[in-house]
Design a protein around this nucleic acid. Sequence first.
DNA 1: AGCATCACCTGGCTGC
DNA 2: TGCAGCCAGGTGATGC
Length: 279
Amino acid sequence: MPELPEVETVRQGLETIIVGRRITGLDVSGKRTVRRQTAAELGSRLSGRTVTAVRRRGKYLSLELDDGQFLVIHLRMTGQLLHVTQPSLLPKAPHTHVVMTLDDGSEVRFVDQRTFGEWYVTDEAGEDGLPADFSRLGPDPLSDGVPVRVLRQRLANRRSPLKAALTDQRVVAGIGNIYADEICFRARVRPDRRCDTLTSEETRRLASATATILRHAIRLRGSSLRDQSYRDLMGEIGGYQARHQVYGRVGEPCPLCGSPVSRIRFGARVAYCCEVCQQ
DNA sequence: AGCATCACCTGGCTGC
DNA sequence: TGCAGCCAGGTGATGC
């Protein structure tokens, strides 16, 4: 599932191949990917435009166009962007819902098995020069950082479990299921701890673990799980899954103390953790 | 306001 | 072996 490190890896790839390129065509075959406007409107607003920048906040991608519009893409759970340099040699994969053609003849294909992913175009910009809708999102740990005092203030009055807060995109943008569990493990705090019981020291460790884990995961180009639904723009899988300490490792020894990793449930959620090392 | 729950969707897995 | 039913999971809507 693409979270911040995976989306950032895709962003870096897109930046390389698309900035300065003109969009020459858009073929929308899926019914659900484009829902805020018609496929025809999306196509006509993108055609002929040149991409000037590719930016990201949390899990959202924004392609800036030369007329001030933004093409916003969210991969949700199974969305993949693939760059195909010789389209005639590579048949479209199943679940290909959008094909965007560039002026060098290459294609960016959007493949999304579960059709939760979304594409839309907007011209409403926020103060930060990103699409206005992004203002709902909390700070991006990579581009904005997560100062301890911000995290402390955002967690102090919440009664929900820590993992629910970490994956709430209004608190911090970009953390999902995998990295929330890894961050909690590194900070040695249980994912089901009530936020308002966290000590300053624990919050400090959470802020620090967030930065460390996300940066490391980006260096390794993200995590691909067994279904390999995450792949980068060139179709390559990531490398961070080998570094997961607790996520998906129920029963395996905790890297710190050796006791088996637990899969705990709270509310409708599941999390992996070491019940000895994490309090 | 803040929190919980559900809907959205498909393929793979589990258990009978 | 076959198949029903569960599970995964980010986000927005809805309900309490």
